[in-house]
Amino acid sequence: MGNWNQEELKKALQLYAVTDRHWLNGRRLADDVERALRGGATFIQLREKDDMKLEHDAFLKEAAEIKALCRRYKVPFVIDDDVDLALEIGADGVHVGQSDMETGLVRSRLGKDRIIGVSTQTVEEALLAESRGADYLGVGAVFPTGSKADASEVSMDALRAICKAVSIPVVAIGGITEENVMELAGSGIVGISVISAIFSKEDVEGAARALKSRTIRMLGLSGD
């Protein structure tokens, strides 16, 4: 896991922000990422949807700029799915879904020092991902979400069962907002992963700050 041991990674997963170019409205993605970091985002995933992908060189430049921001704010920076890009720019790792590259193969490509996150929905998927080298899991969708049209929901019981079954940190994903985040209290998660709850807001920094505050309360922590 490179610069992060498991306790450091657990803390870094409290407010996990995933980028989405759809919400920019003329702004630069790197600027919105910095606003989220100023507001308290503790982890950044660069995610490019197929319908809005940049040309490779432009994406590489953008990724390098966001990586530099994350270094400055001392938070992990991972790439969604693209192992080759993560290696090319020296990202801290990648996050993969069930339909992406298999976790063990990702680990063999990245080596032991980079972070691997895996999206899971069942205890079986979670245990397999952990055994193949995942460092953390993203479990969801815990609420209805418009960010991933094909996302099916995971019950609170299933979320608790996954958290109990694995020894690696778990973050909840899918449809989480400032209004519903408290419903996740007691589930066993170490944090939340969000897209629109931060990046769809006009005040990205303020949205991140408010969501971080409520997430800390939800986790039963006294400070960040």
Results as ranks from 00 to 15, higher is better:
residue 32 D to K: 13
residue 143 F to Y: 15
residue 132 R to E: 13
residue 88 E to V: 06
residue 30 A to F: 02
residue 71 R to M: 10
residue 47 R to N: 10
residue 129 A to W: 00
residue 61 K to W: 09
residue 121 Q to M: 10
residue 146 G to V: 12
residue 148 K to S: 04
residue 103 T to L: 10
residue 79 I to S: 06
residue 127 L to A: 06
residue 82 D to Y: 10
residue 115 I to F: 03
residue 107 R to M: 09
residue 139 V to M: 07
residue 70 C to F: 02
residue 29 L to Y: 08
residue 29 L to A: 02
residue 105 L to K: 15
residue 78 V to Y: 07
residue 101 M to L: 15
residue 42 T to L: 00
residue 144 P to G: 06
residue 87 L to D: 09
residue 33 V to K: 02
residue 107 R to T: 04
residue 125 E to W: 04
residue 40 G to H: 05
residue 123 V to E: 12
residue 60 L to I: 08
residue 35 R to W: 04
residue 90 G to K: 15
residue 135 D to V: 12
residue 56 H to F: 12
residue 83 V to R: 06
residue 71 R to E: 14
residue 103 T to G: 12
residue 122 T to L: 07
residue 122 T to Q: 08
residue 126 A to H: 06
residue 103 T to W: 02
residue 152 S to I: 03
residue 35 R to V: 00
residue 130 E to A: 11
residue 125 E to A: 12
residue 46 L to C: 05
residue 55 E to S: 10
residue 83 V to S: 04
residue 119 S to C: 12
residue 68 A to V: 01
residue 112 K to C: 09
residue 82 D to R: 14
residue 92 D to M: 13
residue 43 F to I: 04
residue 112 K to S: 15
residue 143 F to C: 03
residue 125 E to Y: 03
residue 50 D to G: 11
residue 141 A to Q: 06
residue 67 K to A: 13
residue 48 E to L: 09
residue 142 V to R: 02
residue 115 I to C: 01
residue 137 L to M: 11
residue 133 G to F: 07
residue 39 G to K: 03
residue 107 R to S: 07
residue 147 S to H: 03
residue 47 R to P: 07
residue 41 A to S: 15
residue 97 G to P: 05
residue 84 D to W: 12
residue 110 L to C: 00
residue 93 G to Q: 12
residue 78 V to R: 02
residue 54 L to D: 14
residue 141 A to V: 04
